[in-house]
Amino acid sequence: MQRDLLDALRCPGTHEESWLVAMVSHAEGPELLEAELACPVCAAEYRITGGVALFADRQPVDDDEPYTSDMVLRLAAMLGVAESPLPVALVGRYAAASGVLASFVAAPQLLVNSGAPTNAPGVSHIVVADRLPLGVETLAAIAVDEDYASPALLESAARALRLGGRLVAPADVPIPAGMRELARDEVEWVAETTVRASGLIELRRRAPESVQ
């Protein structure tokens, strides 16, 4: 997992959005290989092992379906990102498009519930259950396949998208609130965020009033 992704991670627990505290035990340059993650709100613990951030048990995914350049070019057009400092997330079988997509989209990649991790530069891997452990406006775009397109995961994906960021999902699932449909066919729809979600609330100490 890329070290830069740490700032985007949040506890997936059902409480106010909270950063995670990381204790890194092994890193190689920008790549975190082994670390412990803890939530200061609910005390939940997660880990990074072998470069993969685990927020759930590993779930094997058959992502060996080959992606041609034309297929990935179509995906890139739906995601609507040419370059971005924020990651583009590929969930489930979409992760198989990662290598070819890098030639069309100059952005970090976040592969979610993918098959065997790759060590490509700028690529992070996480394993999740039914919610993305990401803060508000931490993704440029995301594609979610039919195996993981639950209402909870799609809602968390919409929250994680920047304003105007696009979500690609199966045609038979509802579009999350706060998103506007852009296109649809018999397989997929693509929508963009139109409402800015609320995120972390920072508490500021007020300066004491002067004594008269």
Rank of each mutant, 00 (worst) to 15 (best):
T194R: 13
V61P: 00
H125I: 04
A76T: 08
L9N: 05
D70M: 13
G164P: 07
A96W: 05
C42A: 04
V173G: 03
P151K: 08
A53M: 02
R131Q: 09
V41S: 07
G135E: 04
L154S: 06
S124R: 06
V211Y: 12
R196S: 15
E17K: 08
V81A: 03
E83D: 14
D7Y: 09
P151T: 08
E192S: 14
E137G: 07
D172W: 06
L134C: 05
D64M: 11
A35W: 01
A171F: 09
M78K: 11
G199D: 11
A191W: 01
E137H: 12
G29V: 11
L134F: 09
P121W: 05
G99Q: 10
V21Q: 09
C11V: 09
A82D: 14
A152S: 15
T68E: 15
L203H: 08
G99Y: 11
A106F: 03
Y46W: 13
E34G: 04
A22I: 03
L73R: 08
A129C: 02
Q59K: 09
L134P: 03
N113S: 07
T193Y: 03
L79S: 01
A96K: 08
A44V: 04
S84M: 07
H26C: 12
S210I: 07
D63G: 11
G199E: 12
A82L: 13
E28D: 13
D145I: 05
P117W: 01
Q2R: 14
R196V: 15
L139F: 06
A169W: 03
Q212H: 13
V127P: 02
R93N: 02
P60D: 04
V105Y: 02
T194Q: 12
G115Y: 00
A106C: 03
E192F: 04
S114C: 14
S18F: 01
L33G: 06
V123W: 04
D145A: 07
L33M: 08
L203P: 00
P108V: 04
S18T: 12
D64A: 10
P85D: 13
V112A: 05
L182D: 06
G178F: 08
P174M: 08
A143T: 04
T138S: 15
P176I: 07
A38Y: 00
M23V: 13
T14H: 12
E36N: 12
A8P: 02
E65W: 13
